[in-house]
């Protein structure tokens, strides 16, 4: 088992620009079922992907792959024709919000948004639009979602992943890769790794991801990687204390960030004593999580949390 995506996920691509094409190609090489794409002017065409199979992906595949992905004018048409149940959005920032809402309107169950730089007010509107609709949004400004050896949606390097026992949820891209690599090296592997993105307004929260991992029978422990700014980590800590039975390890980036300075991610801004690393670390510790002090210790923190829970 896993969360969000698996071998049955049928992926639609919104945004076949340079980056979109490159990463969709990597996903197909990994073994992901990419069934459709949308494009405002290229409807009716077919996008051809071919190359050498990524042998770190879905098992039992070798040699070359060749996929002809049909391009549709609208998400509705793509879903009706292909039964796509997940979408990945690479659409540029000015048009990304519209793309997300189009996917939601068409009933796409999972919408993963890689696009970085979407205006905050656009995401405020998107979040409102998604209220009451069954679609789940992951991101924006995130590396995506991967269930090792089954399905890769996004931009993460597939080969560092190994199917296993730990759920990974993170606000940061490269820090997710660090954690994943350490879990693979430690032989623990991952059930699913979810990047929830560094923007101040996003779809899936830490709490959402933790709840899904808690409910997933194959996930035995979780590592969550947070950052300064906002209160998402504190909310996660409260949820862990209340409802989580599985061991949790955590890392919070930005212990040394000076207040009031914005560190790359729009989310990573601290002001007025809200959302500092110290506050987040204290909240997570109080909830029973093992907190790694440096990113090099993330794997060890998971091992410690699993041992303490008698699961290792």
């Amino acid at each position: 088992m896993s969360i969000l995506v698996d071998r049955d996920t049928r992926l639609l691509v919104q945004g076949l620009g340079g980056a979109g094409k490159f990463h969709v190609d990597r996903s197909i090489a990994y073994g992901t079922q990419v069934v459709a794409a949308t494009h405002p002017t290229r409807a009716g065409e077919v996008e051809l992907f071919e190359g050498d199979v990524d042998t770190s992906g879905v098992p039992g595949r070798s040699g070359r792959y060749r996929a002809e992905v049909p391009i549709f004018p609208t998400v509705r048409a793509a879903v009706a024709e292909t039964g796509a149940n997940a979408s990945v959005v690479f659409v540029p920032p000015p048009f990304a919000a519209d793309a997300i809402m189009e996917a939601a309107e068409a009933g796409v169950a999972l919408i993963v948004v890689i696009t970085e730089g979407i205006p905050i007010q656009d995401m405020v509107r998107v979040k409102r639009y998604l209220e009451g609709r069954p679609s789940r949004l992951v991101g924006p400004n995130c590396p995506g979602v991967i269930t090792p050896h089954q399905c890769r949606i996004g931009i993460m390097p597939g080969y560092i992943h190994q199917a296993g026992r730990i759920g990974v949820v993170s606000r940061s891209g490269t820090l997710t890769y660090e954690a994943v690599k350490q879990l693979t090296d430690a032989g623990l592997g991952q059930t699913t790794a979810v990047g929830i993105g560094g923007d101040p307004v996003n779809g899936t929260s830490f709490v959402d991801a933790l709840a899904m991992f808690e409910a997933d029978p194959d996930t035995e422990g979780v590592i969550m990687i947070g950052e300064i700014g906002g209160a998402a980590e504190e909310e996660a800590a409260a949820w862990i204390a209340e409802s989580m039975t599985k061991p949790v390890a955590a890392f919070i980036a930005g212990t040394t960030a000076p207040p009031g300075k914005r560190m790359g991610h729009a989310g990573a801004i601290i002001s007025g004593g809200m959302g500092t690393a110290a506050e987040k670390i204290a909240a997570l510790r109080a909830a029973g999580a093992v907190v790694a002090l440096t990113p090099s210790d993330m794997g060890d923190a998971v091992v410690e949390a699993m041992r303490a829970a008698g699961r290792l």
Partner: peptide, 9 residues
């Protein structure tokens, strides 16, 4: 950005 902050830490 996350790794950059973590590197500073």
């Amino acid at each position: 950005a996350g790794l950059a902050m973590a590197t500073m830490d």
